[in-house]
């Protein structure tokens, strides 16, 4: 995607000294007895019963329209947390995230209910993502066909709990990928299912990328980062360790992980 004026890059996401802290109840090591819990309640203020997890520590970057940004780092380095903060789903402890439009995470798992039929989940998931009833009606067949759920019989009218894990994952991806987004964020391991479905979902992600202004991709697969991203942010222990063109960062990262 070319800039309207060469050199004039239009920012879409700005992170400014962003810190994210999770508070976890009941994960305090040591005494977990009822009496110690009571004494914690009685001593008000910053209660010591809550453990803080400082997941993202002072990350700053600016991303521009038309960029595809990869996020890499070892497990638990804060990649998914950073994505959620950019989407405005996790409140920042300090610092700010500014965005153009509404960034969305690709994924609707949390809105779906296993006890409902696939059919009703398509509608529920669509509504949860903010699609209108008409839009869903229009795309319903497309979603079902894409998931391939009905290839082996009329499964879409059965409750989702009867699906195999692969089938359920396919339906979830199909629902999530039915909507176009301004700033799109994709968390790794979305392309699940068998070989042919993986191929189809990769195509679909590419298509979504074309419509989106900026794409963030979290992945442990360096190949898929190379294929899709032109810039990479490397997070380690919640800190931004490196930010630059894909090849440079990946070379350092591969050295770091010892590949």
């Amino acid at each position: 995607m070319a800039d309207p004026i060469p050199g004039a890059k239009i920012p879409t996401v700005i992170a400014d000294e962003l810190h994210i802290v999770y508070r976890v109840n009941g994960a305090k090591t040591g005494k977990g007895s009822a009496t110690s819990a009571l004494s914690r309640i009685l001593r008000r203020g910053e209660s010591p019963g809550v453990r803080k997890v400082h997941a993202v520590r002072g990350v700053s970057f600016v991303s521009y329209r038309g960029e595809a940004v990869g996020l890499i780092g070892s497990n638990g380095s804060g990649k998914s947390t950073l994505l959620r903060a950019i989407a405005g789903l996790l409140p920042a402890e300090s610092g700010h995230v500014y965005t153009d439009g509404q960034p969305s995470l690709l994924g609707v798992n949390a809105a779906l209910m296993n006890d409902l039929t696939g059919e009703r989940n398509v509608i529920l998931g669509g509504l949860a993502m903010g699609m209108s009833r008409e839009e869903i009606k229009e795309r319903y067949q497309q979603i079902v066909d894409f998931s391939g759920i009905n290839e082996k019989g009329d499964f879409i009218t059965l409750p989702m709990r009867t699906y195999s894990s692969g089938m359920a994952a396919r339906l979830r991806f199909s629902i999530a990928a039915a909507k176009d987004h301004d700033v799109l964020m994709i968390d790794e391991a979305l392309a699940t299912g068998d070989r042919s479905f993986q191929k189809r979902s990769e195509d679909r992600i590419r298509e979504l990328r074309k419509h989106a202004g900026t794409v963030f991709l979290v992945s442990h697969n360096n190949k898929s980062i190379r294929d899709t991203c032109d810039r990479v942010l490397w997070l380690e222990r919640g800190e931004l360790r490196m930010d630059g063109p894909t090849e440079e960062v990946l070379k350092e990262y591969e050295k770091f992980t010892g590949k």
Binding site: G7, A8, K9, I10, P11, T12, V13, I14, A15, D16, E17, S60, V62, Y64, A85, I86, A87, G88, L89, L90, P91, H96, V97, Y98, T99, D100, P103, R231, D243, G244, P245
Partner: peptide, 28 residues
């Protein structure tokens, strides 16, 4: 990418956001 000089270089994050009409993500 960030080493290319641009007219926005001197701006703070908040200033840059304001210039391009970006809003705080997840604001009420």
């Amino acid at each position: 990418m960030s080493d290319r000089p641009s007219p926005d270089d001197g701006l703070s994050a908040a200033g840059l956001a304001a210039k391009y009409g970006l809003a705080v993500s997840g604001a009420r």
